[in-house]
Design a protein around this nucleic acid. Structure first.
Lengths: 248, 248
DNA sequence: GACGATCTTTGACGCAGATCAACCTTTGCC
DNA sequence: GGCAAAGGTTGATCTGCGTCAAAGATCGTC
């Protein structure tokens, strides 16, 4: 079962699950055809490192399925996750030679890759790609700034609640519609990875999850399967106002 | 002296101090001429709020001189600075109706503003602007991620050292050349604003600055004027490797 | 079915940084 | 010159989270 995920790779952009959300979202048929010529798929197993910080970037690309993390490290070993890459998210920076962060697949993952040079050349003559990439980058910047508030000012309990609400919300946007009733999802991260995301230790993560469970904010089956009976309650615990979000 | 800064507003793009680093950096003469028609200058006094989060964004623009901050707030009053805007930095997000963050001038400041709609229209037909904005946004994203490491994993002392090294480095890039000898600059932020940037309290900021002074890492004249006798030492205190930086 | 590896939980303890409080310095205003 | 406001420093105390440690749960392998 090692290569379970490797077999089910899409071949046609038409079938692609991220066709309308990835960097290619705005492309016309002819542009897509051009992209199709320089693209190739790569599969990664859970735990596998996609790119090491400082390595030469031979390609950029989109996450098609699965989840990856962007992590920054200090020399003494402390690490901070700085991005969580979900299906349709873009990996790599056009114009940059070397990777700035470690990219690690936390689940089995499939990427749609483009060799960097041809992609950069295509970007110059294809405004639809550059426009979409700008839009995605601005969204990522907003997410990063939201996360700075979490890291800088929230308590451990609020941090956990914030992460859960983000995962829940995103999961809901994939399993789309269905805003009613309890939300149910699986945590795609280990306690350690959550700690890494939140600037905490894994022990604190574990304790706070236990506390939220004890207080009925979440229901756990096993260690990863989460049910949120009342999403507004979770939002309150996260320190976010339950009425309207920050962004449109 | 209230309006000291208001008088010295540039009028011509040719004289503009940020001409080659702002969002207009790549524009040709004719594009610049077009931009010139929709631009206007605004001055702000130190302490003045430029935009409130949630307000309608009538304009976008570039910081010409002075410094502004981007701040995010929770309902209970906790705040986190999420951006420090220096000359040439861009304010606002094309395509977004309302401001996501508070923007406050921390020094007297001049902005080169464009009404949002005409600017957005111009962006569509002027790849040079969109390209430059993408580049700038990617840089900001990198800076935000760097800051996530600071917020999530560094100690109070390391946080202060990190902020000082960032300010010192930036100041050096303006007072350009001159990599030798001690670095000298003025802190553009109050202790409170530094605390806000670093996810600390102002008391902790004050104590750590005192400690760095006592240990000879920095020399203070008054409360704002800083001399860094040995920049590598400061980098070590920041937890960054003194040899090469992370980014090219 | 015993064993090791990986992930997780829980407890005991200590410390970095928050909180609360007092006081100093500088600046502008009457 | 006196006074208030804003910014800054320093001390005493408290506490949330990190650190260290032990042990439980799950899973794959021999």
């Amino acid at each position: 079962m090692l290569n379970e995920s490797v077999k089910a790779v899409p071949r046609e952009c038409g079938d692609c699950p991220i066709r309308h959300r990835a960097v290619c979202a705005r492309c016309e048929a002819d542009e897509l055809e051009h992209l199709d010529k320089i693209k190739y798929y790569r599969s990664f197993e859970a735990g596998q490192t996609v790119i090491w910080a400082g390595d030469k970037m031979e390609f950029v690309g989109s996450v098609v399925s699965g989840i990856a993390t962007l992590t920054q490290a200090m020399e003494d070993g402390r690490t901070q996750m700085v991005g969580l890459l979900l299906p349709s998210d873009f990996v790599g920076r056009p114009g940059r030679e070397t990777a700035a962060y470690d990219v690690v697949a936390t689940t089995d993952m499939v990427m749609c890759c483009f060799r960097r040079k041809p992609f950069e050349e295509m970007m110059v003559v294809t405004p639809h790609i550059a426009q979409r990439l700008l839009e995605m980058t601005l969204d990522e910047l907003d997410a990063a700034r939201e996360w700075m508030l979490v890291l800088g000012r929230k308590t451990a309990r609020e941090k956990i609640a914030s992460l859960l609400s983000i995962i829940a919300r995103r999961d809901a946007s994939l399993t789309f519609g269905k805003t009613t009733g309890p939300m149910v999802f699986d945590l795609p991260l280990t306690r350690e990875a959550m700690a890494d995301y939140l600037g905490l230790t894994l022990e604190t993560v574990s304790r706070q999850i236990s506390a939220l469970r004890k207080d009925g904010v979440i229901v756990l089956e096993g260690k990863r399967h989460v049910t949120v009976p009342d999403f507004n309650r979770l939002m309150e615990e996260a320190g976010d106002d339950s009425d309207g979000g920050l962004l449109a």
